[in-house]
Every structure is written in structure tokens, then in C-alpha cells.
């Protein structure tokens, strides 16, 4: 037990995060400064958490999907749909809680659509979810009629920019969701069932698991997470930008899951590690912003760091550096 805790603390993910934060601190000495301003915490580190929250929320849903050997490419578009729905409804005079509920329902519906295609019609996830990835943004544009729908509803703005106990609301939402989801999959057999389906769907079915229901559920959950992220992003800029909200974030979410050590081939997964992956990605983005590098370097720096992290995680490096191949099984759990 003691060694497991230790190996978790020095996992490639925590080392990568520490390294990225260290580099940020060297490039910008004020990186760890946090002050109390207008009843909330204020500082670069808070920015990392706040800006990383939408991808972290996407990554929570994405982890469950990837653990079943699937992938959900539609989350970015679902974010746009949810944001557009909520913004258009409050602008049309609906109360905020109704708008939020309908936006969440829209996310659930998109997830259900993906789930039906994957679980019942047996379409490969990458193709099944591509449908909403492409069409979803169009749907969002239809909802907003192509323009950015700005709103001034305090509840919706609170979701994106409010604070609770000094922490930005997106961070609070992401942390709550991560803890609840982890408890749900680890304190019940649900996590084990998801992993079983991911490792071998037919074997799991023969073992008595309702694989189809489970698959439906993870895609619905993923759509739900995307809808929350979409409302955060819309609330943040006080407007629903159907063209750009969540654009390419599905890739960041998948990357966060992969950095978190969950295999794209399904099976064992860790929601908290995926959230950590999202924080690593954002720490990199924020670091680039405060460092003063010219923007032409952004993608080069990012890809370099990611390659490094993935190499660190590979079985090869585990053999090379730890000289104990068995250590990797402990590290990724």
C-alpha cells in the first residue's frame, strides 16, 4: 500500500506537471504569486486551473468513453450546442435554470445519439461520433443564426466567471465532478464493469454485463460533461460563439486522457489522472502566455513537451530509467 501511494506520487504525470510548473517559474518568476482580490484568488496558478477546467471536465467524460475502447470526437461541437442553447434561451426570456436544464438535456441527447450509434448499431466510435462533430457545429450555428449571442443573465455568467470560497466556479465544478465520478466508478463495481467492456466486449457480455446499456451510459455521461463545459465557456465570455466554442477541444480532451495514462485500447482508466493531464496541458498554455515567447513557437513548444511526456510514460522508458519493468503497472493505476 505504501509503495502504491509512493509510485502514484512520482508517476510520469506528476513529474511532468512539476517540470512544466518549474519551467514556468523560471521563465516568469511571479508564476506562483497568488493574491486575494475582490473576494477571490488571483494569480497565474489560478488561471491554469480556471482555464484548464473545461478540458478537465471534457476529459472526465472522455476517460469513461476511452476506457470502453471508444472515443468521442463530438464533445467540442456538443459544447457549442449547449452554449448556444443556453444563451439563446436566456436571451429569449426564459429563466436561467430552465435554460441550463435544456442545455444539459441537449448534451444528454447528443450523447444518447452517439451511444445508440456505437452500442446498438455497432458503428465504430470514431465514425459514429464524427457525425455530431461535423453536424453539431452546424446545429449550434443554426441556433445562434450565425452570430455571437451575447447575454447578461447573472446565473449563466456565474457558471463561467463566478467564484465559490475564492475559487473560480469552473474549478469548483470540475473538481466536484471529478470527485463524484471517481467515487461512482471506484466505490461501486461500475468502474470494473467499464474496464471489462473495454478489454473485451463480448467476454464481458458473456460474463453477464449489459454491455450495451453501459456503452450507452458512458456516451450519455460524456455528452453531459461536454454540455457543462460548453456552458462554462459561454458564461466566461458572456456569449455563445457557435463558430469557435470548443473548437478542437475534443483533441485536447483525448490528449489529457492519454497523458493521464489511460490506453486508447480501453481497459484500465483513471479519472483523476486525466484531470491532471488537462492541468498539464493548460499549465503549458499559460506558461507560454506569460513567458513572452512569440506566438509562432506555441505549437512547437507544446508538441515538444507532449512528446517528452509520452516518451516518459512509454514502457521503454520505464525499462530504461527504473530498470524494473514491473514498476510501470503500479504507476499507471
Amino acid at each position: 500500500m505504501k509503495t502504491r501511494v509512493l509510485s502514484r506520487l512520482i508517476s510520469p504525470q506528476t513529474m511532468a506537471l512539476a517540470a512544466v510548473l518549474l519551467v514556468n517559474w523560471i521563465l516568469f518568476p511571479g508564476f506562483f504569486d497568488i493574491e486575494w482580490k475582490d473576494g477571490r484568488l488571483f494569480g497565474s496558478l489560478i488561471d491554469v486551473l480556471n482555464r484548464g477546467a473545461p478540458v478537465a471536465i471534457l476529459a472526465i467524460g472522455m476517460t469513461a468513453v476511452i476506457a470502453t475502447k471508444g472515443v468521442d470526437l463530438s464533445v467540442g461541437a456538443v459544447m457549442a450546442i449547449a452554449g448556444a442553447t443556453a444563451a439563446t434561451m436566456v436571451e429569449a426570456g426564459w429563466p436561467a435554470h430552465t435554460a441550463v436544464a435544456v442545455a444539459l438535456l441537449a448534451g444528454l441527447a447528443c450523447g444518447l445519439w452517439n451511444g445508440v450509434l456505437v452500442a446498438l448499431l455497432d458503428i465504430q466510435p470514431i465514425i459514429a461520433t464524427l457525425v455530431i462533430m461535423v453536424a453539431g457545429r452546424g446545429i449550434a450555428q443554426l441556433i445562434t443564426e450565425g452570430s455571437i449571442v451575447t447575454f447578461s443573465d447573472p446565473t449563466l455568467i456565474f457558471i463561467g466567471t463566478g467564484s465559490f470560497l475564492g475559487l473560480p466556479m469552473p474549478v469548483v465544478i470540475a473538481a466536484t465532478l471529478a470527485v463524484l465520478a471517481t467515487l461512482l466508478v471506484r466505490r461501486t463495481a461500475l468502474g470494473l464493469l467499464v474496464e471489462a467492456v473495454g478489454v473485451n466486449r463480448s467476454a464481458a457480455r458473456y460474463a453477464g454485463i449489459s454491455a450495451n446499456v453501459l456503452l450507452l451510459a458512458v456516451y450519455v455521461f460524456c455528452g453531459f460533461c461536454a454540455a457543462i463545459a460548453g456552458m462554462i465557456v459561454a458564461g466566461d465570455i458572456r456569449g455563445a460563439d457557435a463558430n469557435n466554442a470548443g473548437l478542437w477541444l475534443e483533441l485536447d480532451a483525448i490528449l489529457a486522457v492519454v497523458i493521464g495514462g489511460t490506453s486508447l485500447l480501453g481497459g484500465r482508466f483513471s479519472i483523476l489522472m486525466s484531470v491532471l493531464g488537462a492541468v498539464i496541458i493548460q499549465a503549458m498554455n499559460t506558461g507560454i502566455l506569460v513567458s513572452g515567447f512569440p506566438p509562432e513557437f506555441n505549437l512547437v513548444v507544446k508538441s515538444g513537451v507532449i512528446i517528452l511526456i509520452l516518451v516518459l510514460q512509454s514502457p521503454l522508458s520505464a525499462t530504461l530509467f527504473l530498470r524494473a519493468p514491473k514498476a510501470k503497472t503500479g504507476a499507471s493505476k
Binding site: R51, V233, G239, A245, L289
Partner: peptide, 14 residues
């Protein structure tokens, strides 16, 4: 908008 806001946040800190 969202990237403009995020980048400006970084600039303000820096």
C-alpha cells in the same frame, strides 16, 4: 473572444 480573454489574463499577470 475566449482566447482573447485568456491571453489578456496572462498578459495582466505578467
Amino acid at each position: 473572444r475566449s482566447k482573447g480573454k485568456e491571453v489578456m489574463e496572462g498578459f495582466i499577470k505578467a
